[in-house]
Design a protein around this nucleic acid. Structure first.
Lengths: 137, 137
DNA sequence: TACAAAAACGCAACAATGTTGCATTTAAAT
DNA sequence: ATTTAAATGCAACATTGTTGCGTTTTTGTA
């Protein structure tokens, strides 16, 4: 179990209060969080723009992956170094009621998807939509 | 080959200039179009809001399906009455360079995706990202 | 410890997408 | 021709996300 500071350092990112806080929240979250979700969850002081930029740098570094929910809002989830396996892309479940994003265990082989001649495949995103456990009571 | 007016009538939607024009553009488009794309493509006069509402009613009626591109912008594609087959969901290709959305022929069985106990599956969205033919020159 | 450079930050301003309320107009059924 | 529900136009607003720029902070090095 690595600490937030180690993760930042490992990716060449400077160690700041906000970044540690954001990482901590995301590591312990079991769902994808939006900018707004994070704004609410964070207890430290920060600027809107800085949070956007923080999320970008984390995404660029491969620490987070971004999922776009059905409203078009970006949500971020901590990605525990499964980047090596580019051929299998893991799927997300999006609840149509609460709009929350869950990471699924299941993964899909990119090579199975057929695309027209001349198209170059890069990544595969699989989103299952439906009703999550909590909303299904 | 049904005309735009028939399609509208069939779905209980009133027949207006804008709606016919939007339908016509979307039926002949081979890519998903955003609100902005449509604004540019349409030759009739219309209000921004009315176009948003038109797209919503088409989506509700099942005439269009909505795809969210990596920027979070909604794109709409004409769906030629394959609604009956809810078990297979067709995939989209999203170009990372030009951001255009292409409908793929391939389809995926919803039942093959495993979700945690208590989660109710509804639809499956598969998005392949990469570089399209035109951008791949 | 002090210093310098690069990175990160805060603020202001802006842009795009999408929504809501309300008064007016229009399509289509009687 | 009349009526009514649906569709429209307009104004105002909300949210998400971006850009530029001057200031502060982190971090490596002297």
């Amino acid at each position: 179990m690595k600490g937030e500071e180690d993760i930042l350092q490992q990716h060449g990112l400077k160690n700041t209060k906000l970044r540690k806080a954001v990482l901590s929240v995301l590591i312990h979250a079991e769902k994808g969080l939006s900018h707004q979700d994070l704004s609410r969850a964070l207890d430290v002081d920060f600027d809107r723009v800085t949070l956007f930029r923080t999320l970008h740098s984390f995404e660029d570094a491969g620490i987070l992956h971004k999922i776009i929910d059905p409203n078009g809002t970006a949500k971020y989830a901590y990605s525990a170094a499964d980047e090596a396996d580019k051929d299998h892309c893991h799927a997300h479940f999006i609840c149509l009621k609460c709009e929350e994003v869950f990471c699924l265990e299941d993964s899909f082989p990119l090579k199975d998807v057929k695309v027209p001649r001349g198209f170059k495949k890069n990544t595969l995103d699989v989103q299952v939509k439906g009703i999550c456990k909590e909303c299904n009571n």
